[in-house]
Design a protein around this nucleic acid. Sequence first.
RNA 1: GGAGAGGUGGCCGAGUGGUUUAAGGCGAUGGUCUUGAAAACCAUUGUACGGUCUUCCGUACCGCAGGUUCGAAUCCUGUCCUCUCCGCCA
Length: 474
Amino acid sequence: MLDIALIRERPDWVKAQLAKLFDDETPARIDKILELDERRRELRTRIETKQGARNRLNRAMGKLRGNRQMNDGTKSGLVLAATAALKRDDTDRALAILEGESATDAADDDGFQAAFDGLIAELRAMGQGIDDGFAEAKTIESELEAQMLWIPNLPHDSVPVFESEDENVAGVPVGEFREFDFEPKPHWELGPALGMIDFESGVKLAGTRAYVLRGWGARLQRALISFFLDSARDNGYTEFYPPFLVYGEMLYGSAQFPKFKDTVYGLEGEGKFMIPTSEVALTNLHRDEILEEAELPLNYVAHTSCFRSEKASAGRDVRGIKRVHQFEKVEMYKFTTPDNSYDELETMTRQAEAICAQLEIPFRRLEIVSGDLGFSASKKYDIEMWSPGCGEWLEVSSCSNTEAFQARRAKIRYYPGGTRKTQFVHTLNGSGLATPRVLIAIMENYQQADGSIVVPEALRAYLGGASVIDTDQA
RNA sequence: GGAGAGGUGGCCGAGUGGUUUAAGGCGAUGGUCUUGAAAACCAUUGUACGGUCUUCCGUACCGCAGGUUCGAAUCCUGUCCUCUCCGCCA
């Protein structure tokens, strides 16, 4: 979520930033937000003043009623005078009387209860407009909130401004492209031949985009997950195992909701949803908390399954295991101070690249252009591995700095420099890495003419020392 | 699934309709003392929103949402969550 104050104070600048996203829906929302914000503030100022007066009057009346030093007659006199003042709409005078600045004529004791009843009637009348005002304010505020939740994050100045993902700036590929003396096969041929991937069973159990890993396939994936987690731990990340099924609020916190609600699986009745990425769980670990500055940055890592309906990409990448409903991902996550977040983004991206390098698979970094940033990132790098079988670059990691966008939604703050004023932290997320795709890259890069697959050095320790995957028993 | 208990500031915890404008403690911060530290003592110390954006004022917030009342942390209703015991199951 953006800072409402920023929108209020620099609406044209915000619109210019949003224009870089080539999203023609948001400018109208900004205008709507400005209007709602204006109405909200005008209304609140008005009713809060009135409410303040009512609160003071009520308090003063309560105090007066319980006053043991004063006799009933004197009290009645004050109350009658205050009531008269209120009838003339002279709130200040009524307050002055009740709060003891001036006494008036004593009435007789018999009038005590009647005097208070008269005042209460005045106060009741005074409350009429106030309740309606608060109700209206609440309506406006929830409308405002709903609009705010649809505004995407603003791009960082360093992000290249282009509309299409085709313009993403590709870095120089790292690693050696292997020379094949045979035609490299795609994983959807290699997998079934080696008994590693069973597409038929996947479809039988769960339909399109479902798959079963078998034998070496399942073991290789497990090895990769362990390898990824260990790498992250070596880099100082603390490992977590979070729930995969979380409350809907968490998805608002990490900004999948409301925009991408129809791409997430869940139990609407229970208000719980399957996470599309561990980022959802990790972000919300510190929801509603004020963190200690000294403990920042927090570096977390988690392996979870991820669930995505892929509604937006229906019909695309239906072959193989590149785009599936359920996959495994190891996610790095950082909570940082605003000052350090961009340095941390570089660090995190390099860490993801280092994993690719250790697997000895050619990879490249893409600097994502403004039009392809997605909803919550201010800046994003993708890392792609080369897949000689299907002949394409596969996105295996995506590293983003969301700045305060998620932190503001999830209310994750800290006190900067010992001050008393809270500030939102910055949050970063980056895959390190995602398995079905790395599995593809390994199979296709390490395949041999006879259809067997060489195990990358870095993974052998996780597979009992095995160096080759073939049709032998896994 | 059944029965019960409970949700109050960073933490613990008091508070059964108006002198509560959330006591007290812990922690934290500043100060006094000290060669330094500890201890002791003194002071300060919630969040959000708004206001001529000021260490000034106002409003809201005691799980959440409604309701009663002139006035609700306190009473009523609903709801969510946590804990304990029992039952069932891996």
